[in-house]
Design a protein around this nucleic acid. Structure first.
Lengths: 239, 239
DNA sequence: TAGTGGTCTAGACCACCGT
DNA sequence: CGGTGGTCTAGACCACTAT
């Protein structure tokens, strides 16, 4: 309803791809045909098609047409910003969140640098373990600038902080820079995770920005080696 | 020269950001001002700005303007499809490639599935170790459909296969799906890498597609834990 | 209210691919 | 050659932000 025209066309085409009306390997109708079918302008059609292309559902080829790809049906999101709650729902396995800490703290040096805050600011520090099928395999350490999040409770942390921020506070998360590396386990990891003898964890560092480009959150997500998986979809630029 | 208008505007704005003419935190000129400055239409300006935004250099905010971000200066590429040669040049450390294998083989079951080929096809199998500062820390296993790559030599493998494919054969790599996980070391890893006691490796699986959407290459890149690093830049979709 | 970015249109020309 | 997608234009209206 309140949807943009190009978004509704995107969603319509996407559902037709997912339902097999447009099968992989086949060509989509040409842009001019789609202009006719949807009764809109070509640029609007092209916006919808470009979205499909960016998300890996089709490949556009000059002079030929738009081919439906067989990638795009990922279990995991494409280059994903996804919350644990969304993920847990997707994999459909019993899971829960254990909150170990949820406090306002003064930032130390490392945090000041990561969050771009000063000693005068206060910062929410949240430590949670994610348990899947009875094993705590992910340790999430979240730090929020208090300026953006006035209050926070353990109950919220057990559910989904993202949902609370977006739906209750109206905060719009915009994008994130993500760094992945493998680090040695810390004492904290050993204390809060079921490490089963693993000496290293995969560390995903997230720098989360708001719609207005201010740095809002720093997150460390520490995964047990054997349970880590990440899917990315990269387009090579011919610049 | 043969460059598109929006690309040359993109590159011009980008160099001004990198040279500090547009500093981070500052606003870019408005779209209408840029229309004047570059003597072009607004949609063309918007294409250039959207590229900057997608690459993490600016953040566009409705009603306000385009803000220059301080991310965007990554050592590593943004959600990267990058060759080892490009990478080695970037980090500027002594490096070389050791070719252990470069043969035409019949695909086994696993490979048939990964590359979408049949027993009738032949496949190039290339095994290379990447040495940085005297240590072999990455093991690259590449498989190409012979249909696309008629010939291949050890010399080419020691240099850059990508350069050979793109410049000599005119093959255009278009996009890749990437999966990252951590696996136990195989005998092959122990044989070809300097593992320094590590029992696991980070495995990056790449499925590489051509411009015409055909699956072309399957690559496994196996990294020693302590030397692995990956940077990604994800935009949250408000669909 | 004036200025910003977001969407949309109707037309144009081009480079590329097939026949 | 006709059809395809890629670029570009000049205009319009809208939603949002500032003052």
């Amino acid at each position: 309803m309140g949807e943009n025209k190009y978004l509704s066309i995107y969603n319509d085409l996407l559902s037709k791809i997912k339902n097999g009306i447009f099968q992989s390997g086949m060509k989509l109708p040409s842009e001019n045909q789609l202009v006719e079918q949807y009764g809109t302008s070509r640029e609007t059609i092209r916006k919808a098609l470009n979205l499909l292309s960016e998300h890996g559902y089709i490949q556009k080829i000059k002079g030929k047409g738009s081919i439906v790809l067989d990638v795009g049906k990922f279990d995991f999101p494409v280059s994903g910003l996804i919350s644990f709650k969304e993920l847990a729902q997707k994999i459909g396995k019993p899971s829960r969140t254990i909150v170990y800490e949820c406090d306002l703290v003064k930032p130390d040096e490392k945090l000041k640098k990561h969050l771009h805050v000063t000693s005068k600011d206060e910062v929410w520090k949240v430590i949670r373990a994610r348990e899947i099928e009875g094993e705590r395999i992910i340790l999430d350490k979240d730090f929020f600038n208090k300026q953006f999040v006035p209050s926070l409770t353990r109950e919220i942390c057990e559910d989904s902080i993202y949902e609370y921020l977006e739906e209750e506070l109206g905060i719009k998360i915009s994008f994130a820079k993500k760094e992945i590396s493998v680090d040695e386990c810390t004492e904290e990891d050993k204390k809060y995770l079921d490490l089963k003898g693993y000496t290293h964890v995969v560390v995903v560092r997230n720098y989360v920005y708001l719609d207005d480009a201010s740095l809002f959150q720093y997150t460390e997500s520490r995964h047990r080696l054997d349970k880590f998986r990440f899917v990315d979809f990269a387009r090579r630029e011919h610049l």
